[in-house]
Nucleic acid binder design. Structure first.
Lengths: 220, 220
DNA sequence: AAGTGGTCTAGACCACCTT
DNA sequence: AGGTGGTCTAGACCACTTA
């Protein structure tokens, strides 16, 4: 037996590093990703870089034109608005379905996460709050037993998430989030499919309007 | 100047041919796609094949495991049901939005397509009918001004469409389609967002149930 | 016409499975 | 240990742009 220490493939490692560099802003939206430069930066040959870029195109982070090369996907207001509408449609469907499978103990877990979220907000631990927010929705989404749908909304979300954490949340928005989550928990407890869907739709719509407003005000 | 006759890239051509071979059943769901064999079949070297497979993975036609190679995505009942639920969620959102932009003359075009569809069905031209059906929904989807959402539903649909055209439609199903489309046109004319959404939801749900039922009865 | 940079090839390399 | 088949490299090739 022979311990290699690292048995990921090169393209997977490169893909993960490029993704990280995009999401942390090393490569900003719209920036060209020149293969030769990436060869230098990551110390591998062209082909693994190209394959990584192909995969990142599949994830929606990169756009790739034949004979023209790769660039970090640009985010304009239309794109963001459209993706939020997709998220709204899918999450509304997922929360409906989740009620079918949601157990009492899962609802308790959601309540616990929501309590922790509110505590994190009180003590101004924003990155912890962000993480708990994601976890809250993730539990609902996973419980709907539709991994394909979850993959679709996770897919094109990395860039928008990184944008959102750059612009932050207003106090007003945090209060809305808390109120919405409490209503969603209530709807789940009552097994009220219609109410859960209505609140989720409103929740995503508010998130969209808030982000777009903050982008407009903070970039001019 | 030099006329090359064909200036697509090799990987794009290979990708299109593999896609076609998958959708026409040359490579059935679950079948392994061995790079060396594809090299023979298409007469190019390994790397363009690999890039084509990466892209097809992005389209959902192929699944790709590191160090394990590629295979045609398997279609089980869960996957199909889940993808129909995604389609239902997104098309319902799109038909709502489309009402905002839909002009009288576009509604006339829809009515014309629907008339042609019914004539095609009468005269048993099923492939023409299939095409008109796609065109009907495509017009509504495009009119919603959300190309990202349209791309998502088109994306993972190739395999399911090829399956559907293999199993065909029942007479009962064709009558349902006609009735649903007429109701959708009526809802658009009246600018009735709620009715359009309800009928579209029912329409996709029926399509899902019909396909799954036919798969069950015809494969045992 | 030269430069830039994306794309393709041949073959070597190496992980995993079977014996 | 040997075979199968996925992965990586170096360099050649070629499309497109700028002058």
């Amino acid at each position: 037996m022979h311990f290699t220490g690292m048995n990921d493939t090169t393209y997977a490692r490169v893909r993960d590093r490029i993704r990280e560099d995009i999401l942390t802003g090393v490569f900003a939206p719209g920036v060209r990703l020149v293969v030769a430069e990436l060869v230098q930066r990551y110390g591998v040959s062209q082909m693994p870089i190209r394959e990584a870029l192909q995969q990142l195109q599949g994830e929606g982070l990169v756009s790739l034109l034949p004979q023209k090369g790769a660039s970090v996907r640009k985010l304009d207001e239309h794109f963001i608005s459209n993706m939020y509408d997709v998220r709204m449609a899918i999450e509304t469907m997922l929360v409906r379905r989740s009620i079918e499978y949601m157990t009492e103990s899962q609802i308790c877990v959601l309540e616990q996460i929501q309590n922790d979220y509110e505590i994190a907000v009180e003590s101004d631990k924003m990155s912890e709050a962000l993480h708990l927010n994601e976890k809250f929705h993730s539990i609902i989404n996973v419980t709907a037993h539709n991994p394909e749908a979850v993959k679709i909304i996770d897919q094109h979300w990395g860039l928008i998430d990184s944008l959102r954490s750059k612009f932050g949340f207003s106090n007003k928005r945090v209060k809305e989030i808390i109120s919405d989550h409490r209503q969603i928990i209530e709807a789940l407890k009552q097994r009220d499919v219609q109410l859960a869907a209505t609140v989720t739709e409103k929740h995503v719509k508010e998130a969209k309007d808030d982000l777009i407003l903050r982008m407009r005000t903070l970039t001019e």
